[in-house]
Design a protein around this nucleic acid. Sequence first.
DNA 1: TTGTACGTTTAATACGTACTAAACATACCA
DNA 2: TGGTATGTTTAGTACGTATTAAACGTACAA
Lengths: 176, 176
Amino acid sequence: MAKTIEDIRNDLIHVIGEKAEKFGFSRIAGQLEGLLLFMNQPMSLDEMAERLEVSKGSVSTNIRLLERLKVVRKVYHKGARKNYYEIRGNIWEVETEIMSTIARDEIARVKSLMSDCENDLNTVKVKTEEENEDINFLQKRFSEINDYIESAEYILNLLLKQGDITPAVVKKITIS
Amino acid sequence: MAKTIEDIRNDLIHVIGEKAEKFGFSRIAGQLEGLLLFMNQPMSLDEMAERLEVSKGSVSTNIRLLERLKVVRKVYHKGARKNYYEIRGNIWEVETEIMSTIARDEIARVKSLMSDCENDLNTVKVKTEEENEDINFLQKRFSEINDYIESAEYILNLLLKQGDITPAVVKKITIS
DNA sequence: TTGTACGTTTAATACGTACTAAACATACCA
DNA sequence: TGGTATGTTTAGTACGTATTAAACGTACAA
């Protein structure tokens, strides 16, 4: 028995839902992204809830998460009280936006905490030779981490500086 | 009251533990990575369990996960029956290994499922004009996704082809 | 062969959190 | 003003899964 278009759409939505879970988002957030990616029309909260068979509350919460992440945006229908949402760009734009948001947040978190640890380490009163070795070792690690963070930021900025990255542009990336 | 070196090490282990959870690993897996990163000596299962105050079973399971991910490796102590583990490289090597593993696995998964969906779409019997538009739209999306995957693979291969990526090398990455 | 020291596996539990249903808030229309 | 249509918040529940404790397997030593 051949699949219908709706069957295939369901499969696609499911794939994106699982992808979302892998990257730390809820299943429904991913399914909403998938739904709007593979429907070529904006949808209301009620329509999305009905289509995915989930509660309206979940749709409300998760669609606003996607809005914050710049994955979807509201689109205004003339004389309609409902909110309609659509995907914000093509797949490349959406995915890189998500990725860079995750990366930026995590880099900021680690950076701040590492800085705290480095400061703490400077206040340690060294008594034994063993302690001294320990401190030197940790300082070597700090230096590695700082290098790593710097590199990650470099790549991130490189990609973000380009306004509109396309697959064609990506192939121009080289290590000279 | 100033912190001791062990206090600072605990903070560091905690940071890495949280990082692991953000990227879909268990807290203990991350804490083990952190522990071995910030101790400058190999440790046995029992030592790790005691130091982190977790069960030995958890350490066993999670350390083998880290071994599979090439984050840690066994190191043989002469005439010792215990297994000792140490971190497998510097922070850059460990982190990029983890990242590229995650990326490679997810790319493979999506690639295979998308291919299935594309095949299914070709078997759909088109009846209405509306259905035809739907199919064209989905095919446009497939093409976007394939481009995206191709780009991701390009970048991944670029990084992996270099045997030993260092922060200095990263700064040579440019979009020409 | 038996005992001991280790690593692994497993059954049960604990825990976080996504999700739902329902109450609530708000805006628009009659 | 009241009534209806919409979106949001929240308290409770369900569910997945990380973790533990204990049983188990295995290899070495005496």
